[in-house]
Structures are given as structure tokens and as C-alpha cells.
Design a protein around this nucleic acid. Structure first.
Length: 552
DNA sequence: ATCTGATGCGTCC
DNA sequence: TGGACGCCCTCAGA
């Protein structure tokens, strides 16, 4: 037993029981344990536990470790943080896990992202000057006065479970073929999936050797995609053949240690200039000519030296305007016609790392940023000013290890430029299951428009992409991909789990072993659930438990 | 069932 | 300015 192993590592460990009803983990040591326990309780009464520990550090006497029930967060007794069923109880000694303010926990947080709690609007900035008057007269009439009714893709239409062998890090829809979704993973593999034919999917494993951070299609060439990776290269891949060439390699000499290994994160394409823009983990921007495949000019320092630049975005209306964001807590706007270190037009300050920043998709006049301080920010270049955000929306997305970073993305088809989608980190208790929904937020009001979830998806969905032409949302959750559609557009039978089309990529291995062939997924009774409850809270989507329906 | 490790950033010295 | 350390809701595999 591991606890025993650990115990062996110390001269002596005492496990303290809080109540008599609890059993000691080892009966052999019982006498010893009880004796030590008495000692410990004695010393604790007198407040000497720490002294005892100190003494034991210095001398040869045995170390005593109290395993009395304490909060795992603040290490103090009297309360415990953690899951009670599907509801997480916060540690009351820490600031709110959601908004980071002291004095309350998540449950009582006024910013709690749950429709019934409402939303506290941020103050709206407005300056009464002549310029604004002009904008109000000339530009406001062009902004659609009535928001289109939001169409929310809220039902899983199909999925590939364990499609990738590592977690999904980026998604991109094909620019012309409506049903093709590209996905990149932590291992650097590139997936191409036709989610209408469902079984037409492939994973190219030779594109990159580690995290595929960003993908963009080559303008005017539908089947060529660029990707930036933490292996320090930009790849250019032909989707038909899977043949990939490298545009740039920042680590030509291979691994020389962490201090010199360069990784590429943010990437975008300036079609007018015929340039791929990428940025690395040391704060530098590179421009690569797409015709010659050669870097143009020298790398330019655009963020704090040595800090990671995680996002680049060219303005959809003014492609020479570049938006960058990174680990130096800033998003910055640049004019790439005259870009050099320190020449940013605006520096948008955040209190922590900025995961993403995007210009609004139609007018390019707004910026939506996601920061690890658990806030979404809207910067409005027309109706606000760039000194401070016109709105801050508290939203749970601050988990920074083990998961792909959350990025709020605009709905590309929303002409009012107000709908954004982002996965939620913190879970909510939905009918007894702890689920992490994907949130649709009206960034003009801060209102939560919709939270979509599926009882079968128990993992967090940090990567989300709305389709540029259809009512479709693609989600990457752990190693799986999901396609969501509005309920009314799902031609599948409602309320029946077997209505969903699901492929289990992870089941292939087992199946190959059993059947002795390497064929693609097919209808196979062996993989239908055997009386398993599909809505079991944990691992509901483990391939062996889930219905595989192929075609309807 | 329970444990572990892969991991990135913030804070401290 | 850099290295060591610690960390609240992960996830998958052993």
C-alpha cells in the first residue's frame, strides 16, 4: 500500500485519528500508533506540535506527522474544501475562487456564472466629447440596432471519443468545405475529420513533434494549412496528401536546453502582404513570406523579453493592424507597416497572463480578451477608449496547468459583434453531475446567454470554435472532439443517447486485438454498452461503455 | 479503488 | 535576475 511505503521513508509517522470510529490503516502498528497518538494529542494540546517537528528535524527523534482532517487548501482544521457529491465546497479562508475577491466563496459570489444569479454590469465608459458625438451620429446608425436572435448549438450531434492521443489544443474549420474540422493536439498531430460522413477522419502524426498551438488556412488555397508549434517550426501541410513542409525552424541545432529552445505560439496570416506572422516564447515576432517561404527582416521584440507571446490576430478590416497578447500581462496593437520594438499603438493592461485577444469579426473595432485573472474584457475603439476596457466580465477560466488555455472567441456570424463562446473551468451541479459547460456570453451586456453541456461530457472543454457559416459549434475536450448543433437542427431522435453518432477512436486498439485486423470503425455489437448507465457521472464516455452508432 | 505525473506560472529569496 | 518551490474543481493510465 502506498501509504505504508511512504511511511517507510520517514523514521516514524503517526497517523492521527480524529474519531474513534475511524480505523487505523495498519493493524500491525496499532500499538505503536496509539502510543504515538497519545503523545501527539498531548503536545497538540499544549501547542507544541511544531516544536516537536522542529526538534525532530534537528535531531534523531522520529518525525511525527499529524493526518488530522484539515482543509486541503489552507491546511487548517474545522472545515474541508472539496467535492460534496457534485458540488464543490470552497475553502472559506481563501478569496473567492471565481472573482478572486476576499470575503465570500464561489457559491455566494455575485459574479457567479449561472443565469439565476444574474449579472452585475460593469460601468460603461463614455466620454462626452465632440468625437464621440460624431461617432454617435455617423457610425451608430450603421450598427445593427436589433441584435439577431442568437442560435445556440446546444446538443451534441456527433463526436469522436479519444480521437487524439493527447489533449486537443486547437481547432479550425475548413474555409470552404463545410463539414471538415481540423484539430491539433499536444503531441503535434493534425486531425482532419469530416463530421457529416463521421467516419472519414485521419490523424497526421508527422506534422510536429510537440504542441500544435495554432492553425490557419493558406488564403486562396483551400487544402493547405499552416501550423505553429512548440517544436519551433511552422508547418505547411497539404491536407489531401498529408505531406508537410517546414517554413521555419527556430531550433536548427536541436535541443540545447530549455533556455534556448524556442517555441511558436501565436500565428496569423496577412493575406495582403502574403505573410505568415508568428511569435515565440521569448517575446519575438517573425514575418515569413509565403511565396519564398523565407523570413522577412529580423525578429522584432513585441512583448517583454523572455515572455511568451500566445496570440496574434490581424484586424479583419485593416490587416496591417496587428493584435498580440502574452504572458507579460498585455495585449498590444501594432501597425505592421512600421513595427519595431516599443512601437505599439496601444498597450492593453491586464492583471495576469492574457490567453487570447481577438478583434471583432465584422468591423474589427472591438477587442475581446481572455485573461487568467478570470475576466473577459471588451475594448471598444469606437464607443469606448483604449485606456481601460469598456467592460469586464468575471468568468471562470483560470486553470493554467494540465489544460489547454481557455480562449473566448467571437461568433464569426454575429453582425452585432456581441456573442462570444468560452468553456468554463469551474463546475456546476447539474442533476447530480459535476459538469463544465460551454458558455455563450453577450459581451455587450455581460449576460450569460446560454450554458451548454451534456451529461456524458464530464471533462472540461477549453477549446471551442463556432462555424463560420453554419449553426455548428466544435469543441475539443481532453482528447475528444464534439460537434454541437441546435436541438431543432439535430435530425437525430431526441432524448435517446443512442441517437448520437459517436465513434470511439480509443476502442480501435482493443478491437484490433480482438478481431485481428486494422480496419476502421464499424458497427460492432461488442462495443455496445452492456447494461451500463450511460449517465454515470464519471467516465461516461469511456469508449467501452458508450454506444457506437454508425449511420442512421 | 487510489495514486501519480505531466505540467506553467506566480511568488519568494 | 534566476532558481526553487508550491499549487483548489485535470485527466488518464498504472
Amino acid at each position: 500500500m502506498p501509504p505504508q511505503t511512504r511511511r517507510m521513508a520517514f523514521p516514524k509517522v503517526v497517523i492521527e485519528r480524529e474519531t474513534d470510529s475511524e480505523q487505523s490503516s495498519s493493524e500491525e502498528d496499532e500499538a505503536d500508533v496509539e502510543q504515538e497518538e497519545e503523545e501527539l494529542l498531548e503536545s497538540e494540546k499544549e501547542g507544541k506540535v511544531e516544536e516537536a517537528l522542529d526538534e525532530k528535524k534537528k535531531g534523531k527523534s522520529p518525525i511525527t506527522i499529524s493526518l488530522k482532517k484539515v482543509c486541503k487548501v489552507c491546511k487548517k482544521p474545522g472545515h474541508e474544501a472539496g467535492f460534496k457529491g457534485a458540488t464543490y465546497i470552497d475553502c472559506p479562508m481563501k478569496p473567492c475562487f471565481l472573482c478572486k475577491m476576499p470575503g465570500h466563496t464561489t457559491v455566494a459570489c455575485p459574479h457567479r456564472v449561472a443565469t439565476e444569479y444574474g449579472v452585475v454590469p460593469a460601468p460603461h465608459k463614455s466620454t462626452r466629447n465632440a468625437l464621440e458625438y460624431m461617432f454617435e451620429r455617423q457610425i451608430r446608425p450603421r450598427v445593427p440596432p436589433i441584435k439577431p436572435a442568437y442560435v445556440i448549438p446546444d446538443q451534441v450531434s456527433c463526436a469522436v471519443i479519444r480521437y487524439h492521443s493527447r489533449r486537443v489544443t486547437s481547432l479550425e474549420f475548413h474555409p470552404t468545405k463545410n463539414n471538415i474540422l481540423l484539430s491539433g493536439d499536444k503531441k503535434g498531430q493534425l486531425g482532419v475529420w469530416d463530421f457529416v460522413k463521421v467516419h472519414e477522419k485521419i490523424v497526421y502524426g508527422n506534422v510536429h513533434s510537440c504542441i500544435l498551438n495554432n492553425m490557419k488556412f493558406k488564403p486562396a488555397s483551400d487544402d493547405t494549412v499552416y501550423a505553429a508549434s512548440s517544436d519551433g517550426t511552422i508547418s505547411c501541410t497539404d491536407l489531401e496528401t498529408g505531406i508537410s513542409v517546414s517554413l521555419m525552424n527556430l531550433n536548427p541545432d536541436g535541443w540545447q536546453g530549455r533556455n534556448s529552445w524556442r517555441m511558436l505560439y501565436g500565428m496569423d496570416i496577412n493575406a495582403e502582404k502574403g505573410a505568415v506572422l508568428v511569435a515565440d516564447n521569448f517575446g519575438f515576432l517573425y514575418l515569413v513570406d509565403t511565396r519564398s517561404n523565407d523570413p522577412t527582416g529580423k525578429p522584432i521584440l513585441i512583448h517583454k523579453k523572455g515572455s511568451k507571446v500566445v496570440g496574434l490576430h490581424c484586424n479583419p478590416v485593416q490587416p496591417d493592424l496587428l493584435l498580440s497578447c502574452g504572458n507579460d500581462h498585455f495585449a498590444r496593437i501594432w501597425d505592421i507597416r512600421r513595427i519595431e520594438a516599443g512601437s505599439s499603438i496601444y498597450d492593453l493592461a491586464h492583471s495576469r497572463v492574457v490567453n487570447s485577444a481577438y478583434f471583432s469579426p465584422v468591423s474589427g473595432s472591438k477587442i475581446l480578451s481572455t485573461s487568467q485573472d478570470n475576466r473577459l474584457r471588451i475594448w471598444d475603439s469606437i464607443f469606448g477608449n483604449m485606456d481601460s476596457p469598456s467592460r469586464e466580465i468575471v468568468h471562470s477560466h483560470d486553470f493554467n496547468r494540465h489544460l489547454t488555455a481557455f480562449k473566448a472567441e467571437w461568433d464569426p456570424r454575429d453582425s452585432s459583434e456581441s456573442l462570444a463562446v468560452i468553456g468554463r473551468y469551474i463546475s456546476e451541479n447539474y442533476d447530480g453531475a459535476a459538469l463544465h459547460p460551454i458558455d455563450f456570453i453577450d459581451v455587450s451586456t455581460g449576460q450569460l446567454v446560454a450554458e451548454v453541456m451534456d451529461p456524458n461530457i464530464t471533462t472540461i472543454s477549453p477549446v471551442n470554435k463556432l462555424h463560420p457559416r453554419d449553426d455548428v459549434l466544435a469543441s475539443g475536450s481532453s482528447r475528444s472532439l464534439f460537434i454541437w448543433k441546435p436541438k431543432e437542427k439535430c435530425e437525430l431522435v431526441e432524448q435517446k443517447d443512442e441517437g448520437k453518432i459517436v465513434i470511439c477512436a480509443g476502442a480501435e486498439k482493443k478491437r484490433n486485438r480482438k478481431l485481428g485486423d486494422g480496419s476502421d470503425d464499424s458497427d460492432d455489437d461488442k462495443f455496445r454498452p452492456k447494461g451500463k448507465n450511460l449517465k454515470s457521472k464519471k467516465y461516461a464516455l469511456k469508449s467501452s461503455q458508450y454506444t457506437i452508432k454508425v449511420k442512421r
